[in-house]
Design a binder for these strands. Structure first.
Lengths: 141, 141
DNA sequence: TACAAACATGATCACATTAGTCAAGTATGT
DNA sequence: ACATACTTGACTAATGTGATCATGTTTGTA
C-alpha cells in the first residue's frame, strides 16, 4: 500500500467535499487548491477519476464545481486509495517458486493486509467528525 | 512500506545463507541465483549492501562466497527491508498544514506502522523453522 | 447576446526510482 | 599459472509519478 501524493490529494478533496456536503453551492476546484495548496491541474485529473467512479458530481459552467455524491460514512480511505490507483505491493519478481520465496511472499501479503486493515476502518465520516471535535481520540498504541 | 524486488531478493539471500549457516563452505552467488532465479549482478549489488551493514561476510577467491555473520533469530524482515532501502510511505507533499491534512497524515502513519509491525515480528530464524517443518502455522485471520 | 467563470479532455514533460547490465580489477585455492 | 569468485564503479532502460498546458465546452449573468 503506497500512499502517493495522488492518493493524499484525492482524500483531501473528498474530505473537503464531505465537510461542505450540506452547502447549496458546489465547491470550485480553486477553493480546494487555495485551502490545501494542491496543484490545480493535477487535482482536476484526480477529480475526474473520482467522478468516473461516481463519488463526486461535477457541475459545469459559471458557479459550477464539485459536490459529494455519496454518503461519507460509506467511503473509507482504502476505497479512495484503491480508486485513484495505488500500486499493490505484490512484488511480482521473476523468482522461481521456492519454499523460501513462498514464505516471504506470504509475509509481504500479511503486511499489506495489515495496513489495508487500518485504512479500511477509517471513513470520511470519521475524519469529518474528528476535524470538527477536538480529536482527542486515537493513538491506541 | 514498499516491498521492492531488491528487498525480496535480499531476504531470499539472507534466508538461503541462514539455512546453510552450519556448512563449512561459504555459499557462492551463483548457487543463490541458480536456486532462486535472481539476476546475478543485481544480487551482487544487494549482497554488497548486506555486507556493509555487517550481516554477511564475503570470502574472496576460489571456493569463496558469502556466509551469514549474524544470528538469524536477531534479524527480522523489517530489518532487511530497511537496510537495503525501501522508501517509507511518508508522502511528503507540499500541501499546506491543514487539519484535514494532519488527520490524513496520521492515518497514513498508522497504516505504515501496522505493516511494519507485521514484518518486525518475523525473523529469519522463524522462516528457517517454517521452511523445515510442515509450516502448518499462520494465517491467523 | 456577449462574456467570463469553471469544468472537460488529451497530450505532453521532467524527474526520480527501480531493475538490471557491463567491464575491468583483485584475491585465492589448486 | 590459471580458473574461480568476489569488488567496484559506471551505466542503461523502463517505469511511474507529479505536474503542466492548450484547447474546448458548458452555463450563469449583465
Amino acid at each position: 500500500m503506497v500512499i502517493s501524493a495522488r492518493v493524499h490529494y484525492a482524500c483531501l478533496a473528498m474530505l473537503e467535499l464531505s465537510v461542505r456536503a450540506g452547502d447549496d453551492a458546489p465547491v470550485a476546484v480553486r477553493e480546494i487548491t487555495d485551502r490545501h495548496g494542491v496543484p490545480g491541474p493535477f487535482l482536476v485529473q484526480i477529480l475526474r477519476t473520482l467522478r468516473s467512479v461516481g463519488w463526486v458530481q461535477s457541475i459545469r459552467g459559471s458557479q459550477g464545481g464539485y459536490r459529494l455524491a455519496v454518503d461519507p460514512n460509506e467511503i473509507t480511505l482504502l476505497d479512495i486509495a484503491e480508486a485513484v490507483g495505488c500500486q499493490e505491493s505484490g512484488c511480482q519478481t521473476g523468482t522461481k517458486t521456492t519454499k523460501a520465496g513462498e514464505l516471504l511472499q506470504r509475509s509481504w501479503e500479511e503486511a499489506a493486509e495489515a495496513s489495508r486493515g487500518v485504512l479500511e476502518r477509517v471513513t470520511l465520516g470519521d475524519l469529518v467528525e474528528r476535524s470538527r471535535h477536538g480529536d482527542e481520540t486515537m493513538f491506541y498504541i
